[in-house]
Nucleic acid binder design. Structure first.
Lengths: 205, 205
DNA sequence: GCTTTCATGGTACGACCGTACCATCAAGAG
DNA sequence: CTCTTGATGGTACGGTCGTACCATGAAAGC
């Protein structure tokens, strides 16, 4: 046997190069040659680890999803234990709002893939269950907040959770598009979050 | 002089072909040759009316903006006079939410341009003042609704208007992405709209 | 009636694309 | 030691891209 190589590491390295190009210059410039140059490997090697360009794109999108999930998880771990639902919701939403360098990078890269998967849905035939999952998570946090009395009781948790996620995505788009800066977006998000929770939470029992 | 031709009409015809391709197959497939074929003209003619591809893209984006503005205006005209602010807001937001065939077409086409202008901002150096304008319009409608007592008085009109627009854009993205159908999006939007207005408006004075 | 000029067609050029093909090197198996 | 095989490099092929170039009708001005 010749030298064995960690395929997963190589694939992540190359896919990372594609994600960097996608974020900085858009997927239009993510050709096999450009990706190879960015990863500092030969084009042949890109072909070797990803037999076709579609496979490379799909894998890169998967890694990107992993990165975003890891960011959300990391931010949730940094909260106290048990974390107040309001902090959980705030941390989750600001994790996907382009406010710092990492979230700008992630959301910009996602945006680069957005119109591609719109135009070629066969790339991701396994329907992404991610967003639905996040919505359910947020709705459950809202329900918990209602039961402890910190969130208004008359809220519909499902509709509110859907709205919060859509609001955050819309704000993120406007930030990336330059129509608003991150602080303004955060102000809008915080304002709407404030309206869901009671001003004076009941004294701890 | 030889036969004169209405340049504006020819440009709209060709740009319309590009917009059709962008909506149906994405801007990746909007090459000069494909646009010419879709418009049923020669490639030379596309070059003649748009000296470069960037000029074609930019003009098409402008025409698309015109179309969307016309749709919003048309829907606003169909309201009674004077139209209640709540109806104005609802009509404006549902105009940009992909609920019927026309709005799906418009938002899909916009989405196709989105990542392009993110990647190549020099395409639109004249910063689009459109969204800010729409936000101000919505904020003013909210203020009017507050003064007549149909909207809650403690709302911040600017932050609320920004939120409504971002919410609608986020909902639109999820509809186009297939994570939600149009009815579900409309349900979320209506729910949030309902929360802004008082349940029982004061009797007309 | 010639000549200018707008509108249009066809095509060629250089660049880049994704991918297939043909090699070579090196390390473990026998 | 040889042979198999995983990892890698280089390159060529067919295709499409945006654009430049060279044409040709046809209508209006003189």
């Amino acid at each position: 046997m010749p030298k064995r190589v960690d395929h997963d590491q190589r694939r992540r390295h190359i896919a990372g190069a594609l994600l960097r190009i996608a974020e900085q210059r858009g997927l239009q410039h993510a050709s096999m040659r450009e990706v190879a140059a960015e990863a500092e490997v030969s084009v042949r090697l890109v072909q070797y680890y990803f037999h076709t360009k579609d496979e490379l794109l799909l894998a890169a999108l998967g890694y990107l999803g992993e990165e975003l999930g890891a960011r959300v998880a990391r931010r949730l771990e940094n909260l106290g234990s048990p974390p107040p639902p309001r902090d959980v919701i705030h941390a989750t939403l600001t994790a996907v709002l382009p406010t710092d360098a990492e979230s700008v990078r992630l959301t910009r890269t996602y945006a680069a893939f957005y119109s591609l998967v719109l135009a070629e849905p066969q790339l991701t035939r396994h329907g992404a269950p991610q967003p639905d999952l996040l919505e359910r998570f947020l709705a459950n946090q809202l329900r918990a907040a209602q039961q402890t009395g910190v969130a208004h009781a008359d809220l519909d948790p499902d509709l509110t959770a859907s709205g919060l996620l859509a609001l955050t995505n819309g704000l993120g788009s406007s930030v990336l598009g330059g129509q608003r800066d991150a602080e303004a977006a955060l102000r809008v998000l915080t304002y709407h979050l404030d309206r869901l929770f009671v001003a004076e939470p009941p004294a701890a029992s």
